[in-house]
Design a protein around this nucleic acid. Sequence first.
DNA 1: CTCTTGTCGACTAAATCAATCGAGATGATA
DNA 2: TATCATCTCGATTGATTTAGTCGACAAGAG
Lengths: 149, 149
Amino acid sequence: MFVSQKCQYALRAVFELARCHGQGSIKIARIAEAQAIPRRFLEVILSQLKQAGFVASQRGNKGGYFLTRPPDDLTVGEVMQFVQGPLGPVSCIVGDAKNPCPLYGNCAFLPMWKEVQKALSDIYDNTTFQDLIDQEKQKAVEGMFCYSI
Amino acid sequence: MFVSQKCQYALRAVFELARCHGQGSIKIARIAEAQAIPRRFLEVILSQLKQAGFVASQRGNKGGYFLTRPPDDLTVGEVMQFVQGPLGPVSCIVGDAKNPCPLYGNCAFLPMWKEVQKALSDIYDNTTFQDLIDQEKQKAVEGMFCYSI
DNA sequence: CTCTTGTCGACTAAATCAATCGAGATGATA
DNA sequence: TATCATCTCGATTGATTTAGTCGACAAGAG
């Protein structure tokens, strides 16, 4: 598995905030319940997302979190990159000076890794949270056609 | 980084064996040097690849390892899957009964994860070691055109 | 004032990663 | 048959990452 639990929690939390965008502050407890995320862990995650500027918060009674940007201006890739670090398959490709490939420039796998990175980027960087919301709505409509009456 | 060091070593080792396919047994030491892999660690890796049937070995003096299948019949995906486990981005998608997604069937990200898995599979399962060898040869030819006189 | 909610840093148990090591078995060859 | 290069196997290790948990504190609405 390539996407950590923490990163999945972060994405689900942001998705929940995106779904409620414009409705004011959303409480941690509500996000935790709606998206099945351990509450205390979610605190840590949201606090980091706040540092990064993806979300903002309101303290005190009636407080909570909310997105700082509209859902159609926030991509899955941005959040993932912040939580997990570079999205490439191997370190030589993301320019990690700590782990230079000893075969760099001569590695038979380099073209393949680049292909993979592009494929991932094509998906993650082109999926906004608004896309996910729309997709979910569409699915609900399809569900009505198939299962109701 | 999503592909472990060990997995990269395994791929490079198999590549080296693929490149020498048909030349009899190749010594661990030679593979280790050619592909810049820690020797003792490579022993562990090759031993596992042998368990899996990707390679076979000859003991004693003049011993070494060799591929059991021709390079055009062995994909990168097969080796990666064996070394790293399932290649999907998240556990819910690879049918991991230990980590069932608590939102399964209702998770907004599921379609995206499926897209990612397909993209990865399209690359890894369609790249054979023969492809890598050919690619390397092609590159060498281009190098002649560009830099030599 | 009080109750609800976010804030912050410290802490931890478990798993995974990336090896390393030593002793032994095998087999080609001289 | 002795030797030497090579694979074999299990144990062990240190560092890092993962996935959380906890307690005390700060802020703000009513």
